[in-house]
Design a protein around this nucleic acid. Structure first.
Length: 565
RNA sequence: GCUUCCAUAGUUCAAUGGAUAGAACAGGGGACUUCUAAGCCCUUGAUCGUGGUUCGAUUCCACGUGGGAGCACCA
C-alpha cells in the first residue's frame, strides 16, 4: 500500500481552478505546509501571485477559488481564506488514518521511495590522513557521508561507499621520519600520532625539512627498505584503528582506494594530456591553468615529478570509473576548505574524462568542528581524538544506561553515545562550522539523539503494556479530529526526500525532533493504553506508527533506536 | 589584493520569497497517589548596517561592517 501525499493533487486542482475561473494558464505559486499548524495542513499563495494580473484583491480571488474548489477534493475536509489571501487546506480525517494504517502494514518501507532508482551513486567519505589517529573533526565527514549513503539507498539508488585514505605524501613522510628518528613504537596508535606532531614541528622549524623531503621521495620510489617497512607498519596500525572506529560508527566501506594507488595512475593520466593542452609545464611542474574557466592555477605534478593531491584525485576518479563505469553520481565529502580546490580539480577532470561531462560530480563540503573549549590543531597535538570523545560519551551513557530496563547495558550505552554524537553533528546544515559542546553532548537532554531514542523506547514499553492488558492496536475507530501528531507524521517521506536531494540530513533531524516533541506532548496529555477508551486501539496504532518513523529516521541518520531504555 | 563561505535570543542551532521568526540549553515559574521525569506545561529574550527588487525579504541584489577558508609544487 502506497500513500500518495495530497501535494500534487492540490497543485493540479488549483491550476485547473485558476484556469477555469480567471483564464490563466501558467500561474506561479506554491503549495506548502504552513509554518503554523493552526493554519491548516497545506496552504497556497495562489491568490497573491495572480492578484495583479487578475486586477482584484487577493482575498476576493481566494474566495472565488475556494468556492470553485470546495467539495472537489477527496482528501481535503475544509478550505479557508486567511491572512493576506492565503488558501488554507485541512486534510480529511480518513487520510491520516490511512497513513497510520499503511505505516504499520509495511514499516520498513515507510519513507522509502524509488526517486533514484536506476542511479548508481559513488559516495566517498571519511578519507583520513593515515599517520595520525582520527580526531573529532574526521568524524564529521564520516557521519555526514554515512547518512547520505543511507538516504540515497532508501530512495532506490545503488550506493557504493568508498574511502580514499591518504597513505603517502609529505604529511605521511613527517610521521615516518619521526618514527625512525625517535624510535617510537609503530604498533601504538598514540605513538604514531605523536610522531606526526614531532615530524611536523621539525619540518616547520627547518631542522629536518630536507630529511623529510628525502623520506617522502624514498617512500614514493620505495628505495629504502627500512623506511618502507616502517611506513607499512605505521599504515597497518592506523588502518586498523580507522576500521575499528568506522565499525563502531556503523560504516562498512564497499571499496577503498589508497592515494598510493591513485598517484601513479593520476600522474600518467595528467602527463598524457599535456600534448593536447589540457595541462601544461611550468617551472618544472605540470599545472592546470584554472584561469581559462575563471578559476586559479594549480600544480598537478610537482617539480620533483611527484603527483600532488590534484593528480592523485584524477587517478582516483579514473580508478573509480574503471571499477564502476555505470556510475551516475560521484560525490566526495570533505572539508569546506577544499571548496575552491575541487572546482579546479573537477574542471580539469571534465576536460580529461569525456564520460564525466554529463554526470553529476560534486564536492560536499563539511564545516570545521571546533570545541567550545578552544581551537584544535593536529599539528600542535592538542586535538580531541575520536576515541576520546566516544569514550567520554560512552562512559556518561553507561552511567545512565545502568538505571534503565535494558538487558545489555554496554550495548545501550554504545547506542546512546553514537546517537548523541551524530545528532550533534547532523542537526545543522552541513558546510557550516560546528561548535562541538562536549558538555551539551554528554547531557542527553532536550533536543538530542537520546531524546529521540527515549521516545522510541517509551512507545515500545507502552505497546508491551497494552499487549499484556489484552488490547490490540487497530485503525477501525478514530476520533473525529486528527491529533497534532498525525498532522506531522504523514510528512516523513517528504522530509526524507528533501534531505536526500538537498544533501541535508539536518532537515530530518529537525523533523524527528519535532515529531518526538509532539508525541511526548500527546503522551503527557492523553491516556493511550486505557482499556476503557474506545479510541485506545487507534492511539496505540498511532503510537506504533510514530515509533516506526523514529526508527526509520534514526536509521537514516546512521543511528539506532533501542526497544528498552 | 583576488576568490569563496558566513553573520538570527545570553549560548548552540532552525525557518523550498509568505501569515505572529521556531526549538534546545541557560534564566524565572509550575503540574504529577495515573502508560518511563533522558519527559510535560507556562515564561523572559533575536534577524549586523544602509539602500534596492517584490503584494510580501532572515531568505534575492548592491554597497558597507565584522569573521572563517582558499589562492604554485600540503591534503
Amino acid at each position: 500500500m502506497h500513500i500518495h501525499t495530497p501535494h500534487q493533487a492540490l497543485r493540479n486542482a488549483i491550476q485547473k481552478a485558476v484556469h477555469e475561473t480567471f483564464g490563466i494558464f501558467s500561474a506561479s505559486f506554491v503549495v506548502e505546509h504552513p509554518a503554523d499548524l493552526t493554519h491548516g495542513d497545506y496552504a497556497s499563495n495562489i491568490a497573491l501571485t495572480i492578484a495583479k494580473e487578475v486586477g482584484k484583491a487577493p482575498r476576493m480571488i481566494a474566495e472565488e477559488l475556494k468556492a470553485k474548489l470546495d467539495d472537489s477534493l477527496d482528501m481535503v475536509s475544509s478550505i479557508e481564506v486567511a491572512g493576506a489571501g492565503f488558501l488554507n487546506f485541512r486534510l480529511a480525517r480518513s487520510y491520516f488514518a490511512d497513513v497510520v494504517s499503511s505505516i504499520t502494514v509495511a514499516p520498513h518501507a515507510w519513507g522509502s521511495s524509488t526517486h533514484f532508482e536506476g542511479e548508481k551513486v559513488l559516495l566517498e567519505y571519511t578519507s583520513p590522513n593515515l599517520i595520525k589517529p582520527l580526531h573529532v573533526g574526521n568524524l564529521v565527514g564520516n557521519i555526514i557521508g554515512e547518512s547520505l549513503a543511507r538516504l540515497y539507498s532508501f530512495a532506490g539508488a545503488r550506493v557504493v561507499r568508498m574511502n580514499y585514505p591518504s597513505d603517502i605524501g609529505p604529511t605521511v613522510a613527517k610521521g615516518v621520519w619521526a618514527l625512525k628518528e625517535h624510535g617510537l613504537d609503530v604498533q601504538d596508535i598514540h605513538a604514531v600520532g605523536k610522531a606526526y606532531v614531532l615530524g611536523n614541528a621539525a619540518y616547520e622549524d627547518g631542522s629536518a625539512k630536507d630529511a623529510i623531503d628525502a623520506v617522502n621521495r624514498a617512500l614514493y620510489e620505495k628505495s629504502d627498505t627500512e623506511l618502507v617497512a616502517l611506513h607499512e607498519a605505521a599504515l597497518r596500525t592506523t588502518i586498523d584503528a580507522m576500521n575499528e572506529l568506522c565499525a563502531q560508527l556503523g560504516t562498512t566501506f564497499d571499496g577503498v582506494i589508497y592515494e598510493s594507488e591513485a598517484g601513479p595512475r593520476g600522474r600518467d593520466t595528467v602527463r598524457s594530456h599535456i600534448a593536447d593542452g589540457i595541462f601544461e609545464e611550468s617551472n618544472g611542474a605540470v599545472i592546470y591553468r584554472g584561469e581559462k574557466v575563471d578559476l586559479h592555477t594549480r600544480v598537478f605534478i610537482n617539480a620533483q615529478g611527484l603527483p600532488t593531491y590534484e593528480a592523485k584525485d584524477i587517478g582516483n576518479l579514473s580508478i573509480k570509473h574503471e571499477q564502476h563505469p555505470d556510475w551516475t553520481r560521484m560525490l566526495i565529502v570533505t572539508g569546506g576548505e577544499q571548496r575552491e580546490y575541487f572546482k579546479v580539480m573537477f574542471a580539469a577532470a571534465r576536460e580529461v574524462f569525456a564520460e564525466a561531462k554529463e554526470r553529476m560530480m560534486a564536492h560536499i563540503p563539511t564545516g570545521f568542528l571546533t570545541l567550545t573549549t578552544g581551537k584544535m590543531s593536529s599539528r600542535l597535538g592538542n586535538v580531541l581524538t575520536a576515541d576520546e570523545v566516544l569514550g567520554d560519551l560512552r562512559a556518561a551513557a553507561k552511567e545512565r544506561a545502568a538505571e534503565t530496563r535494558a538487558h545489555d547495558v554496554d550495548e545501550l550505552a554504545d547506542m546512546i553515545a553514537i546517537a548523541a554524537l551524530k545528532y550533534q553533528i547532523l542537526r545543522q546544515a552541513i558546510g557550516s562550522d560546528i561548535i562541538f559542546d562536549k558538555e551539551r553532548a554528554l547531557s542527553f537532554e532536550g533536543a538530542s539523539g537520546p531524546y529521540l531514542q527515549y521516545t522510541h523506547a517509551r512507545i515500545g514499553s507502552l505497546a508491551e503494556k497494552a499487549l499484556a492488558a489484552g488490547m490490540s492496536p487497530e485503525v477501525a475507530v478514530t476520533p473525529a479530529d486528527p491529533y497534532e501528531i498525525e498532522r506531522i507524521l504523514y510528512r516523513f517521506p517528504e522530509v526524507v526526500h528533501e534531505a536526500t536531494v538537498a544533501h541535508e540530513p539536518h532537515h530530518l533531524v529537525t523533523y524527528l525532533t519535532e515529531l518526538a516533541g509532539s508525541f511526548n506532548s500527546f503522551y503527557a496529555h492523553e491516556r493511550i493504553a486505557d482499556a476503557t477508551d474506545p479510541y485506545a486501539p487507534y492511539k496505540l496504532q498511532l503510537a506504533n506508527a510514530v515509533k516506526v518513523t523514529i526508527a526509520n529516521g534514526m536509521y537514516l541518520l546512521g543511528t539506532t533506536a533501542p526497544e528498552k531504555m
